[in-house]
Design a protein around this nucleic acid. Sequence first.
DNA 1: CATATTCTTCAAAAGATTTTGAAACATTCG
DNA 2: CGAATGTTTCAAAATCTTTTGAAGAATATG
Lengths: 197, 197
Amino acid sequence: MVSSPPVTQALSPSEVIVSDVVGRLIEFWGFKRNLGRIWGVLYLSPEALSAEDLRHVLKLSSGAVSMSVNELLRWGIVRRVWVQGERRDYYVAEVQLWKMISRVFSEREKTEIDAAIEAFEEALQALDRQKAQLKRGPEHTRTLERIDLQKQRIGQLLDLAKLGKKLLDALLSTAKVDAEPLVRFLLGRSQSHSSVR
Amino acid sequence: MVSSPPVTQALSPSEVIVSDVVGRLIEFWGFKRNLGRIWGVLYLSPEALSAEDLRHVLKLSSGAVSMSVNELLRWGIVRRVWVQGERRDYYVAEVQLWKMISRVFSEREKTEIDAAIEAFEEALQALDRQKAQLKRGPEHTRTLERIDLQKQRIGQLLDLAKLGKKLLDALLSTAKVDAEPLVRFLLGRSQSHSSVR
DNA sequence: CATATTCTTCAAAAGATTTTGAAACATTCG
DNA sequence: CGAATGTTTCAAAATCTTTTGAAGAATATG
């Protein structure tokens, strides 16, 4: 059997815009640009697309497509689908934006923030140890002051990190149940094109 | 006059931890790591430090210090101070964390999000034009369906972006007046080391 | 089982970003 | 002014990231 021709021609203007913007946005959020571009193309496609389609449409190498798609799969941002009697794999974008975002947030940002919190706590402990050592000998006013200032400042960082964590948790648990509450709370009513789910 | 010796010895364990963590965090947020490290060292220092101090403490070249410090100044995250009778410039960290963050957010994330919103709106318009063109000739059910799907999906992206913008605005206006309200709303009460301002 | 097709891997190439350090510039002091 | 000290700039070097493409693994087909 001859390999089936790519489903896709070229991108329409809107498709180019969207995939590029999503590419940039996602790059801003610390992912590779092509992950965003691929997701964008899939998101706007009525049909599932094959790796080869993506390769043509976005002018990427086979390796790049394979690796990118797998990364997207790992993040649960794209799904693999089977197409009746086709040999190759096809892919579709996860379209539930909110679900997508919360998944990424809970893996990435949460990890990062937890690490920071731990580190700050460790730093505070280190300072306490230093302080304890110092007590035995006198005449260290200077150093003592320094230590106290640092404890205070690191304390602030710690508080901030905890605040971030709480905020994130609030967002995430919101996401789990249903997007609406917080959304509604923040938006007031604005004309929406369709509810964000 | 002989150049005054660097104020600083080596970093204490806590200082290393903090400057490294802040370095990583800030890198995660899309800045250069050294910006975070410099800020971290300044933040924990009771005295203002000179460029040379930073150079020694963090093992950076003079050029790197100069450029980094200037970038931090541009972001309003570090301030230059004059020290009585000293020739060189000295620097201190902005210690009002919340102020700092909101400044960065309102310049960076806001720009990015506004650009995305514009782009999505443009994409929607492009689709409308396409649709209008199509109307004149019949027999385009397929294409029409495609366009409508895309309008719907881009609409969701747009809504999401707008939601993000609102959230950001809420955070920022919160920041301007006083950190507490939204913070309190989200946090319930938690034990704090010192209020985050 | 031999072949055809698709997917994955990975070393090397390309590309992007960051850092260095020496030269140019600026400022202060005597 | 001229020397001394400090700062900025910027091309080149070093480093880090991403992409490529060919080789190999995996899987389906006849």
